[in-house]
Design a protein around this nucleic acid. Sequence first.
DNA 1: TCCTTTTATACTCGTTTTGAGTATATCAGG
DNA 2: CCTGATATACTCAAAACGAGTATAAAAGGA
Lengths: 299, 299
Amino acid sequence: MITGLAHAELIAVLAAVTGDAPRVMTVQGGFALPSGPFELGHRSLQAGLREWVGDQTGHPIGYLEQLYTFADRDRTDEATGRTISISYLGLVREQAAPGAGRPGWHGWYDYFPWEDHRQGRPKILDGIAARLTEWAGAEPKRRDLRQRRVDFTFGLSGAAWNEDLVLQRYELMYEAGLVAEAGGAAHPAGGRPMFADHRRILATGIARLRAKIKYRPVVFELMPENFTLLQLQRSVEALAGLTLHKPNFRRLIDQQELIEETGETTSGTGGRPAKLFRYRHAVLEERAMSGTKLPLSRN
Amino acid sequence: MITGLAHAELIAVLAAVTGDAPRVMTVQGGFALPSGPFELGHRSLQAGLREWVGDQTGHPIGYLEQLYTFADRDRTDEATGRTISISYLGLVREQAAPGAGRPGWHGWYDYFPWEDHRQGRPKILDGIAARLTEWAGAEPKRRDLRQRRVDFTFGLSGAAWNEDLVLQRYELMYEAGLVAEAGGAAHPAGGRPMFADHRRILATGIARLRAKIKYRPVVFELMPENFTLLQLQRSVEALAGLTLHKPNFRRLIDQQELIEETGETTSGTGGRPAKLFRYRHAVLEERAMSGTKLPLSRN
DNA sequence: TCCTTTTATACTCGTTTTGAGTATATCAGG
DNA sequence: CCTGATATACTCAAAACGAGTATAAAAGGA
C-alpha cells in the first residue's frame, strides 16, 4: 500500500521596499503569488525556490526563510491528488530589477488597507470593527469571548494596536465573512482579493517580517548599499505600518552598532545633507543580537 | 509530464518535563523520533499528526506547532522516490501517561550534553571547544571567520553563552565532524546519536521552544494543573538549561498576571509550604504579551 | 541678502524595567 | 525549641525607554 503520495508545490512571498511603499511580487496582474512545482532535480527546497525565482524574475534573493507548509483537504485536486504547499518568505533589494520578465510588484496595503497606520488609524477600520462586532453578537452564547478576541486583535476598547497580528486579523475577518475569498462572504469589507489562499499566505509573510525586524537585522536585506538614517527609518515604518520616534530610532540603531558611516553625504532630499551609512555585513555575520528575556542568575 | 510527486512524512518532537528533566518522546529505544506517513484521509497536516500521536502514545498533545519542512536530496529513496518530511513540535503534560504503548521518553541532554548549563558550564565543552578551534585552524584562509563563528556560537573568548543557538551549535559540530551522524566523523565528541537527521530535528525543536518560552506562555502546556512557583521556575530552567534568579523570576511572573492562586498550599518539599497556582487559560486565550520593541511615536 | 522651510543631528529628563542582593516568614524534624 | 529548608517580601542602583527640546546645515523665494 502506498500512502502519503502527494504533489509538492513552492509558493513565495517576495518582499521589497520602494521609498516608503512595501511591496510584494505577484503574477497574474496581482492576483496570485508566484508558485511552481518542486522539481525532482533540485538539491533542496530552498535551492529549488532560489533557482526558479532567479530564472523567472531576474531578482537575486538575499534572505530566504520558510514560512509554513499546508496540506489541507481543500487543496486536493481530483486529477492530480493531494497537494502540499511549502511557502517561503524572501527579501529582495528592489533596484536590481532588470527589464526582462517585468514581474508585477504591488503594494502590500492594496491587499490589507487596514494594516497601514502611518497616517493614523485608517478609516476603513471603523467599518470593519462595526461588522465584526455585529458578527460577535450574532451568536449570543459566544458573544463575550468573540468580542474580546475582536477587541484584542484590532486594538479596540482601549487595547493597543499590535502590528504583529496581521494573520490573526485576516483570519478573524475570514471567519466573519468579511473577505471576498471566504465562500459565503456577501459583503467583503475591503482589500484586494487573491487566488485561493494566497492572501492568507501573504498575511503570514507580513506578520513574520514585522515580528522579525524587531530582533534581527533583516531590514538591511531590503536597503540599497548606502542609505541615510531617514531612509532606513522610512523602510522600517513601511514594513511595520507605523511611524517611529526619530531620535529614539537613531539611538536604537547606533547603540546596536550594526551600521557605519561611509564618509559621504547626500543632498538629495531638500534639507541639510544627510550622512550615508552602510550595513556592517562581514563583521557580524551571525550575531543574533537578541538578548535573553529570562531573569538569569550569575553563576 | 508529472513533476513534484513525492512522499509526505510527518515527524514529531514531543516534549515534556518531569521534575527538572526535560524529555522527548522517542521510538526504537531512543534512537529515532516518532514519524509516519501523511495519510490521504487526514483533514490537514496538524490533524493527521494529532491523530496518530494520540493513537500511538495515548498522550493528548496540548500545544502543537510546525517546525520545518525538509526535502533534501539525501532523503530520496530509490524505491519510493523523494520524501518530504514535515516536522512538528508538540508539548505534552507528562502525568497523562497511560500504561499502554509505553513510549520511550528520554532526557534532552542525553543527546546534547553540552546544552545543560544548570550546574555551570559542562566540562564536555572544553573538549568540544578545543576540537572546534582545531577545525577552524585547519583552513588558514577562513580561519578568522570560522573562529569568530565558533566563539559566538559557543560563548567563547568573552562572548556570553546564548541558550537559543542550539541548532547553530549542532550544525557547527556537524560541519566540523564532531557528531557521529556526520559521514566522516572519526571521533564524535559526545551526545547520543540518532537515526538519520533526527537529532538535527530535535535540535530545531529545542531551539524553538527555548526561544518561545521568553515571549509566549507555553511553559504552562507542560505544567500540571496546579503547581508552585518553584516548580514553574524549575521547568523553565530545565528547558533553558540555565538557572534563574528567583526573586526576579517571581516578579516577572506576577507582573504578567498569567497565573492565580488556587488558595491551597502544598507541604511537599520540606520547607515552608508553598502556595499553589494555576494558569488563567480562559481569561487570556489570545493575549500575545509580546510588546513592541520599536521606538514608536504617539500619533 | 536674508528669512523661511526642510531636513539632520545632538542633548536632556523623568519613568520603567532590569539585575542583584537582603531580610523575614513558616513549616518539618531532631 | 533550635536547625535546616524553603517561601515570600522588600530595597536599591544601573540600564533602557518614551517623550520632548535645541541647534546645525542646506535650498529657495522675497
